[in-house]
Design a protein around this nucleic acid. Sequence first.
DNA 1: TTGAGGTTTTGAGACGATTCAAAACAATCT
DNA 2: AGATTGTTTTGAATCGTCTCAAAACCTCAA
Lengths: 339, 339
Amino acid sequence: MATRNIKEVAQLARVSVGTVSNVLNRPEIVSPATRERVFEAIKKLGFVRNEVARHLRVGRSRTVGLVVLDVSNPFFVDVAQGAEALAEDHDTMVVLCNSAGDPGRERRHLDQLEQQRVMGILITPVETETPWLEELIARGTPVVLVDRPATGLQCSVAVDDRLGGQIAGAHLVERGHRRIMFVGGPPSIKQVADRHAGLSSAVAAADGAVELLTATAPTLTVAEGRAIGERVAALPPGKRPTAAFCANDMMALGFLQAMATHGLRVPEDLAIIGYDDIDFAAAAAVPLSSVRQPRELLGRTAIDLLLEEVAEPEQHRHRQVIFQPDLVVRESSAMRRDD
Amino acid sequence: MATRNIKEVAQLARVSVGTVSNVLNRPEIVSPATRERVFEAIKKLGFVRNEVARHLRVGRSRTVGLVVLDVSNPFFVDVAQGAEALAEDHDTMVVLCNSAGDPGRERRHLDQLEQQRVMGILITPVETETPWLEELIARGTPVVLVDRPATGLQCSVAVDDRLGGQIAGAHLVERGHRRIMFVGGPPSIKQVADRHAGLSSAVAAADGAVELLTATAPTLTVAEGRAIGERVAALPPGKRPTAAFCANDMMALGFLQAMATHGLRVPEDLAIIGYDDIDFAAAAAVPLSSVRQPRELLGRTAIDLLLEEVAEPEQHRHRQVIFQPDLVVRESSAMRRDD
DNA sequence: TTGAGGTTTTGAGACGATTCAAAACAATCT
DNA sequence: AGATTGTTTTGAATCGTCTCAAAACCTCAA
């Protein structure tokens, strides 16, 4: 393994290691002649700067960790792309870690990132209480919570999920639905609980005219959505809700599939609204209505807050940024219902 | 920032730094009493091992880079998940990088990974010829090509794309289609060229009875698929192909959407086959037939080959693993066509 | 020729963990 | 007590780069 170091370059260019380092970091302070000589040596040797050693010396890395709940959910991929786009401008690398909803995996990733001495971490935590995350913060790694409001220990970027649920609920009520189901997941996931709460408030605003059902799955996946859909399709028409509001688009897609395989028409027999407005929502069997979150913007803003904190740790005040969701109405909920 | 080091731990535990290091790496060789004392000190100080310094000394990192063509394509996400799953067993971290089909981004990521001294790189290169990748290999970073056969400089895992195209083509011919369109991308992408070639060979096998059309987009995205779909839908029925084979599922999904918005029925008016069999394919407006690749297996195998090379660099012989694709027939191509 | 002022270059410590030969200690046997 | 063997612990050297005070080198003026 011909991995060259700064010393060999110095030797070949007949300068000191300090000079080579200067050429690498502050080329303007070294004379054009030597600079040229050093560049040549670098090229001839195929020297590649060892970022690890550099990092050890300067103490701060140019890497941030992004720990998401589910990489196979395009929502998080989009958040990641937003983060990466902005990070790239500050030539910083984003490493994407997948907790897959498992606190154990989450913890292992956090440990690894801390050992790596990343400059900061963006995370959508699995659970509301995460003691080791707080310890990590206490030890000095800046953290920004993504898609979840902060507790005061750190910055956060989130979207008002309660409002999102409410908008969706109001829309369904307004379209004449009187029997609405929330297709959700474990209420320990803050986002799920909030969306549910929002829907409830919209239902409550209808003064008892609307009935609210709730289905709960362990994870927010296509498969779980489909499973719940199967159960709903099996209900007698009178018992069946006329609309379903799903905790995310993955579930909505699964739910929709189940409707199709059981010959139920969407939105005629049952309207569906998803959440996140991932790109696949518009491409679904029946184009999905969905509550849109500013996905890339979430990622960008998170990086922004982090960089701000890293730049001036002293006078930094933690902030909580909250965005507003909006409803994209498509065919899956387009119809007015009149019974 | 209270970031503790091994020396402080040693001091508190009243042992030497060497002993602390031993406790961390080979606990069995230090006496239970001291070991306990050191653990206590570690806990009390909240010491977290600095992986950067460790790596500098040991010279080998536990991180591998995975550079993919498009993170928003679930196919690559699944490959990544496969890779990560196996990597985790060897407690190795996978960092996911997105070249987004841009050679410039690809290069920047490779540079960064090399500077980071990762233990190896898995990559689906943007272009067939990538000189700087070869230089990188020459300098000593092990590389495994993913979803593309190797050139001999490195290992590779791939799927026989030509066969995939052929299977899809044979299926369409057998179903009675006589006018088939390949909805593809730039032939500079090897995968695309091979799938096209496979389709061609299946068409050729029909002895001139079948006509082959080709549409080419700059990228393999949903949007491009939709755009091509729009153009096809606008053709007069006689000129229109009766089947489309798309270079990947993303394009197929877009294409399908265009059919729907123009009132063309799938598969009655036009059959569609996609490629990759991503999870969303089954959830599409009309469930998509698709050529399935063993996605997670690709990732796992790539990591496997890499670890093998890293473990015994001397006697390692580069290998090319090739998997067979298979066709999953769903509704979008289910119908027999008889004109 | 000397000195002042400016520009380049030098090289000896860090940074934090690992390694390993050597020292220290302990146990057992003559 | 001394020799022998085995187990723990030590601490200096090392990995590759950056930093910064000091040295070296220039130029120009007195």
